[in-house]
Amino acid sequence: MDVVDLFLTVGFWAATVRMATPLIFGTLGELICERAGVLNLGIEGIMTIGAMSAWMWVYQGGDLWTATLFAAMVGASFGLLHAGFSVYMGLSQHVTGIGITLLASSLSYFVFRIMLPGVTTPPKIEPFAPLPIPLLADIPVLGPALFIQSPLTYIALSLVGVVAYILYRTPVGLAVRMVGENPMAVEAQGIDVFAVRTGAVAVGSALMAVGGAFLTISVFDAFYFQMINGRGWICVALVIFASWRPGKALLGAFLFAAFDALQIRVQQASSSLIPYQFYLMMPYLLSIVALIVMSRRAAYPKALLVPFRRGER
């Protein structure tokens, strides 16, 4: 297979959009947290527990949509936990976030083991089927790539617009951006800084969890250990790549997913001279390069990582 041909195949583009979906959820979630001034390194763990809880919900007989909602709620509660430590108690956001990741991942594996003891091969569920959009799906190449996808992918794509609208066009979005810039300004206007930050972290974490859920109830049909595989960390990098803007976050997610999709195909197509690990490495390497190029002049939220304490002198 020629590399040029590759870009023309529907399969490549469809895979790119599919692989971008969890990254879009995760990046938007992280972006909302960081816009409010809270770094959420719990993302890797929150995606894991989102993946596990959605899958488990379906496996126990729930339907796919309530599973998505359940994952979001589990994610939001871990977000609240993170906010409790980092917003209300003003503890280090790095340490708290990594703690949340360790807790949520371990808890996912623990619950999985407890509920399914003695299982060697992961059991399967019936995941979301691709939902072709009438008419649009008939467009050559673009149709199958964009419009024969999981319903969750459509939600991810439309969320980009929704998040951008909320951030830039609504009073609550202004309050979120402002707590990330100067919490004192928000306090001085009579708005509760803690409430705004906590809300943003909860909503952001819910989105992350849905990103994880997408993997178990849409792409795959089972829950594996280590299945998030660093996607959460990639989202943290993509937020910087995106300069904290939802539109650029979409671009970044597509770019990374395209590298990833390409990597798989090149790996299959090429000879065995180059070890496959090299191809596995490529998306990450290219992301780092893109990050360096794109984020040199990124204006990060001024109050990111800065805890706010009321009545402090």
Partner: peptide, 8 residues
């Protein structure tokens, strides 16, 4: 100390 957000 002004309570303004510089980037907005």
């Amino acid at each position: 100390h002004f309570t303004l957000a510089d980037n907005l």
